[in-house]
């Protein structure tokens, strides 16, 4: 999911960085000091969850869980995932510096979108119903990320079109895994601690 420095056309990089800064500003404005500890600890939790490798056939994938991050954090997913991306780039060498905005938009954009679309459904009804919507949200956010990566590549030139198609294809199994896993996580959280999905930013627990 991490695009590297120098791969994309400059206009794409700048446009996505501007949008990402907008998302960051939106997320920070919804994050009073009171919520910073919760958001920070959750940001660390998603960072750690991203280190888990899940088997898929003969191979394995590492978790992204941006859908779940969106459902729990709302707009705060932008700053929380940004911190994760900065730490990954600086300390693990994943991704790059000039493409931070691109990578943030690709991951946090779909997270916020699925929260806006599915958030209410995940909160309401029985834990099972919430889990099904949560699963759909988890799969949809990975689909959104794959589409965003493919679009960034396709907009950078025709030479990247085969790579863009490959990205879409390679993420179909990841979508399934993330969907199932997010569904299970939502079911668990709905049973154990339902207010995890309380409207983020409005409730200062």
């Amino acid at each position: 999911m991490h695009i590297v420095d120098g791969a994309l056309a400059t206009p794409v990089v700048i446009a996505e960085a501007v949008l990402a800064v907008g998302g960051l500003a939106m997320g920070l404005s919804r994050l009073p000091m009171e919520r910073i500890p919760a958001a920070g600890v959750l940001s660390a939790a998603f960072f750690v969850a991203g280190l888990i490798h899940v088997p898929i056939g003969p191979s394995s994938v590492h978790l992204v869980l941006n859908g779940l991050a969106g459902l729990v954090l709302g707009w705060a997913a932008f700053p929380a995932l940004f911190v994760g991306l900065v730490l990954q780039a600086a300390f693990f060498g994943f991704g790059g510096l000039t493409v931070l905005g691109v990578n943030l938009l690709n991951i946090a954009g779909p997270a916020v979108l699925v929260w806006l679309v599915f958030g209410a459904m995940v909160r309401r009804g029985s834990p099972m119903a919430g889990a099904v919507w949560g699963g759909i949200a988890g799969a949809a956010s990975i689909a959104g990320t794959a589409l965003a990566v493919a679009a960034a590549l396709a907009l950078s030139g025709d030479a990247f079109l085969p790579a863009a198609k490959l990205v879409l294809l390679a993420h179909v199994p990841v979508m399934a895994v993330e969907g199932l896993l997010t569904g299970a996580a939502v079911y668990f959280a709905r049973v154990v601690k339902p207010d995890l999905f309380a409207v983020p930013g409005r409730v200062a627990s």
Partner: peptide
């Protein structure tokens, strides 16, 4: 496997929020 890892992540989030 996916359900167990899902519960693992769910547990991690619940404990994180309570810790926070």
């Amino acid at each position: 496997t996916y359900r167990s890892y899902g519960y693992l992540v769910g547990m991690l989030l619940v404990r994180s929020v309570e810790r926070s």
